[in-house]
Amino acid sequence: MAEALQKLEKGDGDCSLLPLVHDIIKCMDKESQDVHQELAKLKAKIQEAREQIANMPGIDSSPTAQEQQLATLREQVRTKNQLLQKYKSLCMFDVPKAS
């Protein structure tokens, strides 16, 4: 169990819940009244994470699908640029400027 708790401490990433769980377990070990506060923190953290996920842009698809969309967009821009370039270089007559 001690080993496992060490693992909990290690989870120090921004969005890791392990430090909070670790704090709760420590409070329980000490039989401290702070445990309720720590539990509320964990709950708040989870809620915060849910909101963060809801607001994150670009995660409505899987990375693979997103890569495909990106490739499609790049291809579109390339094709359209090519088309415009072709007509600009072909332009042998005076095109009235769009005002």
Binding site: G11, C15, L18, G58, P63, L70, L73, Q76
Partner: peptide, 29 residues
């Protein structure tokens, strides 16, 4: 729990990357 937490963090990183890709896609659009 530890395994799921690691998975969560990895996914959050992926999500950050996708956010950057999303910005690029908006520019392309």
């Amino acid at each position: 729990l530890v395994q799921r937490d690691r998975e969560f963090q990895e996914l959050m990183e992926v999500a950050q990357q996708q956010g950057k890709v999303h910005e690029e896609m908006e520019l392309l659009e």
